[in-house]
Design a protein around this nucleic acid. Structure first.
Length: 581
DNA sequence: GCCGTTTTCGGCCCGACTGTTTTCAGTCG
């Protein structure tokens, strides 16, 4: 049982408690525990073995006992009892926007609604409308929300949401009287997928701002509007929340609306203990006197903390680390000196020439670039002969043209079904950078997948494990394997794990990055570009790395070229593949 | 359910908006 499974059970218990009218604070306790476990970098099973579960904030004796029962048997009694009381279909109702536990429970008790279909019937028949505090407008809104819930493909990848959020913000900055306009919310925290847009404006001219928002080409229609905020549905199907605040509150509002929710609760609780009140309007003392809030730095300073980068604000230990002066110095894009996974038109699907790639990488300030085309198992992938010829060509270019980033020879070699590599070891050993990736048999059993990867890592010629979990956002789930074991072997073999920065891969993800760091495994951030224009994608990988608490020292492609080359070759084995001296 | 610089009992973050009401409950972030 993984952390996400435990988190899911706790979140479901929270929902079930709400539906059955359970204690609201108990509900919150379960929610907090679910969130904590979800974000935990260490497996709960390990903490349980060490007897450290109750050392976690939000986990007391009882929740620890529940976790123990879950780990031992896969379920626990309180959860089962609740499930027996509540029709399972009711849980889906809670995912409909504007439909909460009270309304769902009301429909269940009074109209015997057992799921979304029942609920829709109750809406259309007029039965729901007759219940207390219900009315025609509310029912109409719920019907619309049900439609959207069904149509919604879920969250969108960060890069899509970011583009429209930035476009809207640019337009709002042009409105007279607007002193600042920024993107907040999960986009600012650089979460990999986004559910809605949070936009903030500092201005006293509320009407003008809302009018401009309404006119933005991305906006389809306003769905709610008040004196400080309004909500719109965008043409992309996403929802955007716009808040307008006086400039003196802008910093406090940025902090508040950047979240995450659990981060906010931690900071606010901390403020409260110090006799302060923190809201989106500012920081206030007991008498209600304003102490600050124009900038985010104000807010953090007044509660005795250094400024915390948004990517860390997940309530996953960052407040504690900040208080102790132990915040990481997060990796920045400028720290990356090169790109170690790039495809050229020499094989398969690459569409730019080596020269074009080199030129664009130069514009982006990279100092080195590994050309890592596909091996023979991929359609149009290279056999040993052409692979050697490409390496020679790269050496020739490197010697001939001194301008631009240094070119490294390389390959993205397939890890075959049995864990063999797709080219002879002696060919691979001649190359500067060997990225090994799984491209087939994704549905192997976890045991077999683990054996495949481990065998490849032990070949002695692999430098980097490419897109280690194989996921594609919204398309393909990660394949199942024993990540901890792969980490151990990677450390033992000196193999780095890749953060593939292709915006709908982002593989490794932030949590796996943190695990790798803790296991002492180095990482690389690579674009996996198939066209020169995609070399800029590295920034998406940087954001993942930052969310994974990574620092410059945790990555290999922050090293200068000579150190990188030494590092790539130092771990190569077995010894017979090394030339003596 | 958790937790302790007021507490082992009695608190638990705070505010906005909507649709229903005629003062507020439900939902959201």
């Amino acid at each position: 049982m993984e952390n996400t499974d435990v988190a899911q059970v706790f979140a479901e218990v929270a929902d079930l408690l709400e539906l059955t009218g359970g204690n609201a604070f108990k509900v919150r306790a379960y929610r907090q525990a679910a969130q904590l476990v979800e974000l935990l970098p260490t497996p709960v099973s390990e903490l349980w073995r060490q007897g450290k579960l109750t050392e976690l904030p939000a986990i007391g004796e009882r929740l620890a006992a529940h976790i123990e029962e879950l780990l031992a048997t896969g379920h626990y009694r309180e959860h089962d009892k609740l499930l027996a009381r509540v029709p399972p279909g009711l849980l889906e109702l809670l995912k409909v926007e504007g439909l909460g536990p009270k309304t769902a429970a009301l429909a269940w008790k009074r109209l015997h609604v057992k799921g979304l279909e029942d609920f829709e019937v109750a809406c259309r028949s007029g039965a729901l409308e007759k219940l207390p505090r219900m009315g025609p407008r509310r029912v109409a809104a719920l019907l619309l929300a049900i439609e959207r819930h069904r149509a919604r493909k879920g969250r969108v990848p960060l890069y899509r949401a970011l583009a429209s959020a930035e476009a809207i913000v640019r337009q709002l900055r042009e409105v007279p009287g607007v002193q600042a306009a920024e993107v907040a919310g999960s986009i600012r925290r650089r979460r990999e997928t986004i559910g809605d847009l949070d936009l903030l404006v500092a201005s006293l001219e509320v009407d003008a701002v809302i009018a401009a928002f309404k006119r933005a080409p991305e906006v389809q229609q306003l769905v709610a509007s008040g004196p400080t905020r309004c909500t719109a549905r965008l043409k992309s199907g996403l929802q955007a929340d716009l808040r307008i605040l006086p400039p003196q509150s802008f910093g406090a509002a940025m902090h508040y609306f950047t979240g995450s929710k659990s981060h906010n609760i931690e900071v606010r609780t901390r403020a409260m203990r110090q006799g302060l009140k923190l809201s989106e309007y500012g920081v206030f003392d007991r008498e209600g006197r304003r102490l600050g809030g124009a900038t985010e730095e104000d807010v953090f300073r007044l509660v005795g903390l250094p400024w915390i980068p948004p990517e860390l604000r997940e309530g996953a230990g960052e407040v504690e680390a900040a208080a102790a002066g132990r915040l990481p110095r997060l990796i920045e894009e400028a720290d990356l000196l090169g790109d170690l996974h790039v495809h050229s038109e020499a094989s398969s699907d690459g569409r730019s020439s080596v020269e074009e790639l080199r030129e664009e990488a130069g514009h982006l300030g990279r100092r080195y670039l590994a050309i890592t085309d596909h091996s023979r198992s991929r359609p149009l992938g290279l056999e040993a002969g052409p692979m050697r010829a490409l390496a020679l060509e790269i050496h020739r270019l490197e010697a001939q043209v001194r301008r631009g980033p240094h070119l490294l020879t390389g390959v993205e070699v397939d890890i075959l079904g049995d864990g063999e590599l797709d080219l002879p070891l002696e060919v691979l050993a001649e190359l500067d950078c060997v990225v090994a990736s799984v491209h087939s048999h994704f549905s192997d059993s976890p045991e077999k997948m683990t054996r495949r990867i481990v065998r490849a890592l032990r070949s002695g010629v692999v430098d980097v494990l490419g897109h280690p979990t194989g996921r594609q956002l919204g398309i393909r789930d990660p394949y199942a394997f024993d990540f901890q074991q792969v980490l151990e072997v990677a450390r033992e073999q000196g193999v780095a794990l890749e953060i593939n920065a292709t915006p709908d891969r982002l593989d490794l993800d932030d949590k796996h990055c943190r695990l790798a760091k803790e296991a002492g495994v180095r990482l690389v951030i690579s674009s996996d570009a198939h066209h020169a224009s995609q070399l800029a994608n590295l920034r998406y990988g940087v954001w993942v790395a930052r969310r994974g608490w990574l620092e410059r020292e945790d990555l290999l492609n922050t090293l200068p070229l000579n150190q990188l080359k030494r590092r790539l070759h130092a771990h190569r084995g077995p010894p017979e593949l090394h030339a003596p001296g």
